[in-house]
Design a protein around this nucleic acid. Structure first.
Length: 370
DNA sequence: AAGTCGGGGGT
DNA sequence: ACCCCAGACTT
């Protein structure tokens, strides 16, 4: 079925939506300005991230790095540390690369059109539309998860939103209905409606400004829309972390590309399909580390990712011989670090939990938190 | 077109 | 359990 998009209906829809937005929108910090740098920052932080989770990160980043030059100049490891706990760390790496490009190649000037914005690292179809409409009043839609839900329900679109071909349908529909005088407010109104009224489950239709002109409301099809087919498979991984310790120093390793947590720090790692303590002893024997005393073995830490169920164990070993410590570093791409400096490294969430909850007790030092 | 990449909260 | 979140990038 074809969505009704005649001019009168479009005008009524956008007018109701904008009126509702004016009265009901949340007072969020990134809405105070049209500065493309801070809007960009908020949009990246909010990718696949709820406002409630992202807001404190936005405030911290925008106050610490006030300009794109500040951001580009900062060490990536500092950015990653501040990003710690937010997830999808490629966002931070891409932002840093993007900021460098803007400063180095574009004289610090943010691009001001959809076509230019989408060329930047980390800026895709949604974010390009959001920045172009909010900051530069370009009449392009910003199709995110909210927009998929709101549009599909209001217009009765049953195309599978996980298919890339479907994006085109929604983008063209958005292009037709977006008012050219307030494109940024319109896009934000759609998202605000999706986030507060047109919810995935139990939508608050009786409070919706579009109630009288919504296909899903009329046909009682709210639970059927949007159509989404893909299902994800979750793998289990067993991670045995070996914390090698000697006189207040521990060995850490920065994670490389090709796996989760790229750029974050962890420890010597044994991975297998199952948790096996024996492999740890084999590791010790193979490496001639003297006879390390096992100070501690933690209970299991379970950690859920989108595609993976992680089972982590932490084993703290005290290495007796002094020379071996440096040799172990070289052989395993490890770095020696004093325990008091661990707090400065970006670490994955479950490691953060272990470091805060258990390591101070094991090694008998004060909490890592200031 | 499908897979990968985090962490959290709601139901 | 399952779903979704102001998605983008790689294969």
């Amino acid at each position: 079925m074809k969505p009704k998009t005649d001019r009168k209906r479009q005008d009524k829809l956008s007018r109701r939506l904008l009126d509702w937005y004016r009265l009901n929108h949340r007072d969020l910090p990134w809405r105070q300005t049209k500065n493309p740098y801070t809007v960009w920052m908020s949009e990246i932080i909010l990718q696949q991230t709820r406002v409630a989770q992202g807001t404190s990160y936005y405030l911290n980043f925008s106050q610490t790095y006030e300009t794109v030059q500040d951001f580009a100049t900062a060490p990536l490891d500092d950015i990653l540390k501040m990003w710690q706990g937010l997830g999808y760390y490629s966002r931070a790496r891409n932002m840093h690369k993007c900021a460098g490009h803007i400063v180095e190649k574009l004289e610090g000037e943010f691009p001001n059109t959809y076509d230019q914005l989408i060329k930047l690292t980390g800026i895709g179809k949604y974010t390009a539309g959001a920045i172009a409409s909010i900051c530069f009043d370009q009449a392009v839609p910003a199709i995110d998860g909210n927009a998929f839900r709101v549009y599909s329900r209001v217009f009765g679109i049953y195309e599978d939103i996980t298919l890339s071909s479907t994006f085109k349908t929604f983008f063209e529909l958005g292009s037709q209905i977006i008012p050219h005088d307030q494109p940024g407010d319109f896009n934000q109104a759609v998202m605000e409606l999706g986030a507060t009224i047109c919810l995935p489950k139990n939508p608050q239709c009786n409070s919706c400004p579009l109630e009288a002109m919504c296909y899903a409301r009329e046909k009682k099809e709210q639970t059927s829309l949007p159509v989404k087919t893909k299902k994800i498979k979750v793998k289990s991984r067993y991670l045995d972390y070996i914390l090698l310790h000697q006189e207040g120093q521990v060995l850490v390793k920065q994670r490389e590309k090709g796996d989760i947590w790229q750029g974050l720090f962890d420890f010597l790692l044994i991975e297998s399909d199952m948790h096996s303590k024996s492999s740890i002893f084999e590791l010790v024997e193979q490496n001639d580390w003297g006879t390390p005393s096992v100070l501690y073995s933690s209970a299991e830490y379970k950690h859920l990712l989108t595609h993976q169920k992680l089972h982590l164990y932490f084993h703290v070993l005290d290495i007796p011989k002094r020379e071996d410590f440096k040799l172990i570093c070289q052989n395993n791409k490890l770095k020696s670090l004093h325990i008091s400096d661990l707090v400065n490294l970006a670490v994955p969430k479950p490691i953060e939990k272990f470091l805060e909850a258990e390591l101070p007790n094991v090694l008998n030092f004060q909490s890592l938190k200031p």
